[in-house]
């Protein structure tokens, strides 16, 4: 008996016939953007989605994070602004827990998650997380209701093709464009279903980026 695999592949070959005509893909759409207002556009898109946007200089990140977190806070293990003190880890003077990869159900009791980002896209107001140590596992930015995400200005590109070019396809990737939402009731966008209902983006104006 032939396997399902062999049979399906044989069917596909029969369906296509002996010499399927090759197809040329013309990529005449914009693959790079020449905008000078990338950061303003990014902010405008995020606000349109109902996200909160904060601008800081590199030395103001920890204080901005401390100001934006609420309740019980858990941060990605490699968050650069994490400091250890006599009373345990903190960011900008606010006590935090460092995510240790424990059962996801524990995250249900956490109010705020704090992470960095892998890259961002202005035209669509999108942030991408790739599981690097400053971003943590995917559940961290999913279960708590508030996500505070630090994005460096150098990480923000104009358009979607530039965004994808910056990513590692084999990493677990999450594209976030605003807070959780649904359009399932009468096709109106309603903020907040299962993912974080509050998204705070801290944009760091620096020249080094990543």
């Amino acid at each position: 008996m032939t396997s399902a695999r062999d049979e399906i592949l044989a069917r596909v070959r029969t369906a296509l016939g002996p010499n399927p005509a090759p197809v040329t893909v013309l990529r005449e759409y914009r693959r790079s953007s020449t905008m000078d207002n990338v950061i303003e556009l990014f902010e405008d898109r995020l606000r349109d989605y109902g996200a909160t946007v904060v601008h800081v200089t590199p030395d103001g990140v920890a204080a901005a994070v401390a100001e934006q977190v609420r309740g019980r806070v858990r941060v990605a293990p490699g968050l650069p602004w994490l400091e250890s003190g006599p009373d345990g880890p903190h960011v900008g003077g606010v006590a935090v827990e460092v995510d240790d990869g424990g059962p996801a159900a524990e995250l249900d009791a956490v109010d705020t998650a704090v992470t960095g980002a892998a890259a961002a896209c202005a035209v669509t107001g999108t942030i991408v997380l790739d599981g690097s140590p400053d971003q943590g596992r995917r559940a961290l930015t999913l279960v708590p209701d508030r996500h505070v995400c630090v994005v460096h200005s150098g990480q923000i590109v104009g358009a979607v093709p530039e965004l994808l070019a910056r990513l590692n396809p084999r990493a677990p990737l999450t594209f976030v464009s605003g807070p959780s939402a649904t359009a399932d009731i009468e096709l109106q966008r309603v903020k907040g279903v299962h993912g974080p209902r509050q998204l705070v983006v801290i944009i760091v104006a620096d020249t080094t980026g990543q």
């Binding site: 898109r45 349109d48 989605y49 896209c121 035209v123 669509t124 107001g125 999108t126 995917r138 396809p169 677990p172 990737l173 999450t174 594209f175 976030v176 464009s177 605003g178 807070p179 959780s180 939402a181 993912g195």
Partner: peptide
């Protein structure tokens, strides 16, 4: 412009 979440 983009859906809220895309997972890969």
């Amino acid at each position: 412009r983009m859906n809220p979440y895309t997972s890969m």
